[in-house]
Amino acid sequence: MTTRNIQFKIYRYDPDKDAKPYMQDISVDIDATDRKLLDVMVKLKAKDDSIAFRRSCREGVCGSDALNINGKNGLACLTAIDSLPIDKPIVLRPLPGLPVIRDLIVDMTQFFKQYHSIKPYLINNDPPPERERLQSPEDREELNGLYECILCACCSTSCPSFWWNPDKFVGPAGLLAAYRFIADTRDQATSERLDDLDDPYRLFRCHTIMNCVDVCPKGLNPTKAIGKIKDMMVKRAI
């Protein structure tokens, strides 16, 4: 089987022993069975077991292995190794804008805090019926492009507004989730949800930079969802 050598520059930082972060140069031989970046990273880890990164499903649904790959956020398991230029080393860094715990692993507390802040659950105070609540296929269609989010944080950590105000701006992932519930005909808390977001920081830090759309590995469009929230607010206000 033909093999080739792939060069990497990897962000390394272990607070247990490193005074400050550094970039490690490392290379590995790959063969035709190593199709995705994650396959190659697993090989790298076999070579140097101290390289720390998260991974789980290796098929793009769990959202564990989000990284900054050659300067752009993405999932290692969905990034084809052939899609990366091989004339220079592949640069792997942790997601930007969040504190680094170690190597490629970031502390996602702030990200999830924002997700939790939008009350990410269905609110319906009617007594639950015996059977399912009815919803027309058209109404259900409204949730497409919203519920598929895997909470990988590629979007929020590529958003400059989130970089500047991670504590106050909900960020694209959280706002996408917020609209998922606003758009759900079974949810009864629409006006509370809109009230909660009517704030110069929580929603209106979005300046439609659209990095979120550019990086989303699931092809979702948080900016569009944010636009729809604003539309609803305007409609409500005038």
Binding site: P128, E130, R131, E132, L134, S136, P137
Partner: peptide, 20 residues
Amino acid sequence: VVVELEHYGMPFDRTDAGKI
């Protein structure tokens, strides 16, 4: 348990009658 899940907000696909 499936109906409960629907009540939790699970976005099941729907039939024309609006059922799961």
